[in-house]
Amino acid sequence: MAEKASESSNSISLNTVDGKIFKVSPTIANQMQTIQSLIKAYDSSRVISLPHVNAFHLSKIIEYLEGKSATTVSAVKEFEAQFMKDLSLKQLKGLLIAVGYLKVNELLELMPKTVAKLIENKSVEFLRKFFGIVNDFTPSEEAKIREEIAWAFDGVDED
């Protein structure tokens, strides 16, 4: 914190997989654990390459970390709700992968909660597609489980 005055000269350059360079302040970079360990490995003048993160996801993460600095609890809540509302389920999935890779702890609580809320009424087939899972049950096994807990299949959203 004492180095705040010289923050701009200390900014860290991040290169996304699609070739876009982002300059971020150490305060922001410090909230991404993976980058912290990469800074130690790199010479400070060099650009850090992020092979698993694209520009859209990195810009969203930076937007979140910068916007979250609101003063009141209710303002943060409102900001978080709006931030999540603007993202589609597909975008959330991509962003969560980036968040997991960069280890942005601030988002590792909020994002799984948001995704869970959006998928809780979805069908089994929707979930397989969303998580890229291949069904390994036999048709008769699947039918048996469905029959046992038929009530849990009521009120499912259309895919």
């Binding site: 979930l127 899972i133 807990i149 849990a152 499912v156």
Partner: peptide
């Protein structure tokens, strides 16, 4: 309720 349904996703 969602978990009960989703145990059908995979083993």
């Amino acid at each position: 309720k969602s978990l009960l349904r989703f145990k059908n996703v995979e083993r």
